[in-house]
């Protein structure tokens, strides 16, 4: 389970996240929505400490995964990122073959058993619903795949190192409707084995794929509720104004 307690985050003097507390259950899909600059991606990146890479930032509060504060000094950040995979807005395969992209994380982790790597590559590509499309061209460059296939390859790459959590930052925003639909179907399937947190600007996508939805505005978590509730009868007027397009 993921949990944040009174999280505050600053970029320099800019207060980007304000006192956010939230619990995310295991094997659920949670969507974060909100206008640009509201803090949803910043909040998402907390869960695998991607914000650590940005200079002049400051965090207070606690961010827990299965009860352990991931910002504790004793936490191994590499191990954390193995457990919490991430998929970005733009597909970012490595300039390698399809096979090597998926095997990359395992090899970096010191795995040298070729049979085991081959099995994991196949399993991951199957889990990412890409195996049937690439099984005969595993040695081809990943750049030969379409945008949608590249994004599923990135998901397969994240799955190969057996994370328990997958963070997705607008994973389908650069894709056509068919590829988007495949990613959404995939998210539904992956929920059985993973906890998924997704940032999206597409509200219909949030409605279609998530169990819970968080609405952010100006660095605050305005509402965090069951997705059906948010899209049929939100508790907060700000949420209603945003999702019905009356915001601002």
């Amino acid at each position: 389970m993921l949990e944040t307690i009174n999280i505050n985050f600053w970029y320099g003097a800019f207060h980007a996240l304000k006192d956010i507390s939230m619990k995310i259950e295991r094997n659920t899909v949670t969507a974060f929505i909100g206008p640009s600059g509201c803090g949803k991606s910043t909040f998402l990146r907390l869960f695998n400490r991607m914000n650590d890479l940005i200079p002049d930032t400051h965090l207070t509060g606690e961010c827990l995964i299965d009860g352990k504060n991931i910002y504790s000094k004793t936490v191994d950040v590499t191990g954390l990122r193995k457990n919490v995979g991430m998929v970005f807005q733009k597909p970012n395969p490595f300039p390698k073959t399809i096979y090597d992209n998926v095997a990359y994380g395992l090899r970096v982790d010191g795995e040298s058993n070729r049979g085991l790597i081959a099995r994991r590559v196949e399993e991951s590509l199957k889990s990412a619903a890409l195996w049937d499309e690439v099984k005969d061209k595993l040695k081809k460059s990943a750049f030969e795949l379409s945008g949608g296939q590249q994004q599923r390859l990135c998901i397969a790459r994240a799955l190969a190192i057996s994370p328990s959590v997958i963070l997705m930052d607008e994973p389908a925003s650069a894709l056509d409707p068919v590829s988007t639909s495949k990613i959404e179907d995939l998210i539904h399937t992956l929920k059985r084995d993973y906890t998924i947190v997704i940032v999206t600007h597409n509200m219909q996508q949030a409605a279609r794929i998530s169990d819970r939805t968080g609405f952010f505005m100006l660095g605050e978590l305005i509402e965090f509720n069951d997705t059906k509730k948010v899209f049929l009868n939100p508790d907060r007027e700000e949420t209603q104004n945003y999702i019905t397009g009356r915001f601002g």
Binding site: M203, F231, T239, T244
Partner: peptide, 9 residues
């Protein structure tokens, strides 16, 4: 228009 919330209702 894919209405939601009060608009859908």
């Amino acid at each position: 228009y894919n209405p939601v919330a009060i608009d859908l209702r």
